[in-house]
Design a binder for these strands. Structure first.
Length: 722
DNA sequence: ACAAATACTGTTTTT
DNA sequence: CAGTATTTGT
C-alpha cells in the first residue's frame, strides 16, 4: 500500500516520529514545529500501516477545542477510520468510562458533573452545616485543598492529620464533602479523574480489558499533566501497549494548577525503552523572533534542551517600546495597528497579549474610541451564565432528585417563599439524618416539622418538580427545556429584571433551547440517553466562546490563553517588573522560571512582527506605580531587538517649533506653550521644551530640574501652569 | 427580604 | 480604583 501521503512534506524528524515502530515515545515539539500535524499523521500511520483498529487508539487532550481539531484533522486524512476512535479530553474520557461502569465505580446511574462554582457552594454549605467558622475555613481555600488532594490521588481517609487541629478539621470538611457528593450523586472535575483511576485500580479485569483494547495511548500537551493524570496514563499503558506523549517543557505554564513538569522525566525513567524525538524546526516565526526566544529561555535551568530554528528570513527586529505610562502604551499600539490596517493587512492577524485580564480595559476603551473592531477572549462561557445554569439546574434536579447542588440553586428561584429559615431547617435535617436535601424536604413535610406556610411552599416546589417530570417524560430534549423555562417562572423572572441584562438573558435562554435542538449525542456515547449526554455536554464543554471568530477584529487575550495560537503581528504589553514577571512570582525561582516560559510562549506566537511594550508608570489599584523594564526584556540579545524612541523631530511635517509655538499649539494643546513653566504632581517643576501630535494624543516634552526630560501625554499628565 | 452601606481584595484557567 | 462579598438597617 502506498502510504507516502502520510509522510510527504514532513521533515526528517517529523517523519521519524510519524513512522516510528510501535514503542513508547516522547515527541518534544517546540512551538510552531508542526506538532499537531505529527500527532495526527502518527495516528493515521498506526491505523494504515500497523493496522491498529480504530478502537485500539486513545487520544487525549486537555481542551475540547484541541480534541475537536484533532478529530477533524484525522478524519481529513482517513475519513473512513474516524468513527469509533476515542479522542477526547481527560475529563471527557473519564466521564465516558464512569458512565459505562457506573456500578463498578459505585455511582448512581444518573450521577451528574458539577463545575467549580457548584463545588464551592457545596463546600460552603458543608462548612456552615458543620458549625465551623467560615472566617477560619474559607470555602475557596478548602476547595483548593480538596482539589489538590484529589489531584494527588488522595482521599480524606488516606491523609493523616497528625496533631494539627486545623488539618483535622480540613479533613473533616473533605470527608463531609465526599459523603455529600456521594449521596447526591455528584462528581466534580477532579473526582472524574480520581474515580476513574480507582475504578481501574480496583477492577483488574476492567483494567486488563482497556489495556488490551488501547494498543496506543497518545497525549497532547503532556507538560500540562498532573500527578493523577500521569498515574492514569501509565496505569492504562502498563501492559503490552504503548504511550506516546507530545509536549514541550518550555511551554509548561500551568504549574500553579498542579501540572507537574517532572512527569516528562518520570516517563523517560519509568516507561520501557522510551524513544525521544525532537522537533526543532519552526515553521512560524522569523529568525529574529526565534533567536531572541531561544536566548530568553536559556536562562531557565533544568530544561530538556531544545533550540528552535528556521530556514526562513530573519525578518524585522523585535520592537521594544518604552512608554511613559499605560495611556501612552495603548496609544502606541493603536497607532501601529492603524498603520497595519493602512497596509491593507487584516486586523484579526494582530493580537494584543497581556499578563492579566485587567490590562485589557484600557485597550478596549481606546480601540472602541478609535472604532477598531476587537475581540476579547476569556470572557464568561455560555454554560456558565447565570440564567443558563439555572435552567440546567432544573433539568438536573428532574434527572436526579438527589442533586443537592441543583436543588440549592433552584429551590427559591424564582421566589416561592422559601427563605433561609426553611432552607436551614432542610440543611440541618439532611445533615442529621444523612439525607439529601430532596429527601430531607420530604421528611420535614411528612413529619410536619415546618410551619404551615413553609410546608405549603416547599410542598408546592416538590410537586412542581414531580409534575414537570410527569409532563415531560416523552418529550424530546428541546421541548423539555422549553417547557421548564416557560413553566418554572424562570423566564418571567428574568423578563422582569431591569436594564439591558434582561433582554440578553432571555436571548440566552432562547439560544439554550436552540442549542438543545441541534444537540446530537456523540457517536461514542450512544449508550447514554439524550438528557444525560446533554447535561454532560453542558458541564464539560464550555460552549463555543468565539462565535465571531470570522469577523476581522484585533484579538485581545492573556498570554496563557494565547498558547497554541499564532498571529502575524503580536504586541506584548505591560512587560515590566512586577507586572510580568508578576510581583508574586519574583521571589520564588520555580515560579519565575514559569513566568519566563510564559514570556517564551508569548513571543513565539508571533509570525512576522513582535512588539514588546513597557511603561514607566501606570495606575494600579488606584495608585501610581513605577515599574522598571522587565528582566525578560533585558535577557533578549541586542542584535534581535530595536528600541523605539519617540522622535522629537517633526517627522509628521509639522511646522517648525517656533512656528507651532506661535500659532496652532496654544489652542490645540490645551493651552500649553513652549518655554512655559509647569508643575507635575510627581516630577515637580519644569519647562516645556517640545511638543508632538495634537488633541487627545498630543505629548509634551518637559524638562524637570529633578528628573530630567520626560515626554508626557498632555491629556493625562495634569500639568499645572506656574 | 431587600436595598444600601461597608469591607475586602486584587495573576494566570480548563474541565 | 473598581468590582465583589458580606453585613447592616429598615
Amino acid at each position: 500500500m502506498d502510504v507516502s501521503y502520510l509522510i510527504d512534506g514532513l521533515n526528517d524528524f517529523q517523519r521519524a516520529a510519524v513512522s516510528a515502530p510501535e514503542q513508547n515515545m516522547l515527541v518534544l515539539a517546540g512551538a510552531g514545529s508542526g506538532k499537531t500535524r505529527v500527532l495526527t499523521h502518527r495516528i493515521a500511520w498506526l491505523l494504515e500501516v500497523e493496522h491498529i483498529p480504530t478502537y485500539g487508539i486513545l487520544a487525549v487532550t486537555f481542551t475540547n477545542k484541541a480534541a475537536k481539531e484533532m478529530r477533524a484533522r484525522i478524519s481529513s486524512i482517513c475519513p473512513q477510520k474516524i468513527s469509533g476512535m476515542w479522542i477526547g479530553t481527560f475529563h471527557g474520557i473519564a466521564h465516558r468510562l464512569l458512565r459505562l461502569h457506573f456500578q463498578e465505580a459505585n455511582l448512581p446511574e444518573h450521577f451528574q458533573i458539577i463545575d467549580s462554582d457548584d463545588q464551592q457552594k457545596m463546600i460552603k454549605r458543608i462548612i456552615k452545616v458543620l458549625n465551623l467558622d467560615d472566617k477560619y475555613y474559607p470555602s475557596k481555600e478548602l476547595q483548593w485543598y480538596i482539589n489538590d488532594k484529589k489531584d494527588e490521588g488522595l482521599r480524606a481517609k488516606h491523609i493523616d492529620a497528625g496533631y494539627s487541629l486545623q488539618e483535622k478539621q480540613r479533613l473533616q470538611i473533605y470527608k463531609a464533602y465526599e459523603d455529600a457528593c456521594q449521596l447526591a450523586g455528584l462528581v466534580d472535575f477532579s473526582e472524574l479523574l480520581l474515580r476513574t483511576h480507582e475504578l481501574l485500580l480496583t477492577h483488574p479485569s476492567l483494567l486488563k480489558h482497556y489495556q488490551q483494547r488501547f494498543k496506543h495511548v497518545l497525549v497532547d500537551e503532556f507538560q500540562d499533566t498532573n500527578k493523577l493524570q500521569y498515574a492514569w496514563l501509565t496505569l492504562l499503558t502498563d501492559a503490552d501497549n504503548f504511550l506516546t506523549i507530545v509536549g514541550d517543557d518550555d511551554q509548561s505554564i500551568y504549574g500553579w494548577r498542579g501540572a507537574d513538569i517532572e512527569n516528562i522525566q518520570r516517563f523517560l525513567k519509568e516507561k520501557k525503552n522510551p524513544v525521544t524525538i525532537l522537533l526543532e524546526q519552526n515553521y512560524r516565526s522569523t529568525g529574529h523572533i526565534l533567536n531572541a526566544s531561544n536566548q530568553l529561555i536559556k536562562n531557565n535551568s533544568d530544561r530538556l534542551g531544545k533550540e528552535l530554528w528556521t530556514s526562513g528570513e530573519d525578518g524585522e527586529r523585535i520592537a521594544i517600546y518604552n512608554a511613559f505610562n499605560e495611556y501612552d502604551e495603548t496609544r502606541y499600539v493603536i497607532t501601529q495597528i492603524k498603520k497595519w490596517e493602512r497596509e491593507n493587512k487584516k486586523l484579526c492577524d494582530c493580537a494584543i497579549l497581556y499578563r492579566s485580564n485587567a490590562q485589557s480595559r484600557l485597550f478596549e476603551e481606546q480601540l472602541m474610541a478609535n472604532q477598531i473592531p476587537y475581540h476579547i477572549y476569556g470572557g464568561q462561557r455560555f454554560f456558565d451564565r447565570l440564567e443558563i445554569k439555572d435552567s440546567i439546574a432544573y433539568l438536573r434536579l428532574m434527572n436526579n432528585h438527589q442533586d443537592d447542588a441543583a436543588f440549592e440553586r433552584v429551590i427559591n428561584k424564582p421566589k416561592r417563599k422559601i427563605g433561609n429559615t426553611t432552607l436551614d431547617k432542610i440543611r440541618i435535617c439532611a445533615r442529621d439524618q444523612g439525607y439529601t436535601l430532596w429527601h430531607a424536604s420530604h421528611y420535614l413535610i411528612e413529619n410536619k416539622l415546618l410551619s404551615a406556610g413553609a410546608t405549603r411552599s416547599l410542598g408546592a416546589f416538590v410537586d412542581l418538580i414531580n409534575r414537570f417530570k410527569e409532563e415531560t417524560t416523552e418529550l424530546p430534549l428541546f421541548q423539555l427545556l422549553d417547557h421548564i423555562i416557560n413553566h418554572s417562572g424562570l423566564k418571567e423572572m428574568f423578563a422582569n429584571e431591569k436594564g439591558e441584562k434582561s433582554r440578553s438573558r432571555i436571548e440566552n435562554l432562547e439560544e439554550l433551547i436552540s442549542a438543545s435542538k441541534s444537540f446530537t449525542i456523540p457517536e461514542e456515547e450512544q449508550d447514554m440517553d439524550e438528557l444525560t449526554a446533554f447535561l454532560a455536554y453542558a458541564a464539560l464543554e464550555s460552549g463555543d466562546n468565539q462565535a465571531d471568530e470570522f469577523s476581522d477584529a484585533v484579538q485581545l487575550m492573556t498570554m496563557h490563553s494565547a498558547k497554541g495560537l499564532e498571529f502575524a503581528q503580536v504586541f506584548m504589553v505591560g512587560v515590566e517588573e512586577g507586572m510580568f514577571p508578576s510581583q508574586r512570582s519574583t521571589e520564588d525561582p520555580t515560579r519565575l522560571a514559569e513566568e519566563r516560559r510564559l514570556c517564551y510562549v508569548g513571543m513565539t506566537r508571533a509570525m512576522q512582527k513582535l512588539t514588546i511594550c513597557h511603561a514607566d508608570s501606570r495606575r494600579l489599584y488606584g495608585q501610581e506605580k513605577f515599574h522598571s523594564v522587565s528582566r525578560f526584556i533585558a535577557e533578549l540579545p541586542e542584535q534581535d531587538i530595536q528600541f523605539i524612541r519617540i522622535k522629537t523631530q517633526t517627522k509628521h511635517n509639522y511646522p517648525s517649533i517656533e512656528k507651532r509655538f506661535s500659532n496652532a499649539i496654544s489652542q490645540d494643546v490645551l493651552g500649553f506653550e513652549l518655554g512655559q513653566q509647569v508643575k507635575h504632581v510627581k516630577f515637580g517643576e519644569g519647562t516645556i521644551i517640545g511638543q508632538e501630535g495634537s488633541g487627545e494624543n498630543s505629548r509634551l516634552q518637559v524638562h524637570f530640574s529633578d528628573v530630567g526630560s520626560k515626554w508626557l501625554m498632555t491629556a493625562y499628565a495634569k500639568l499645572e501652569r506656574v
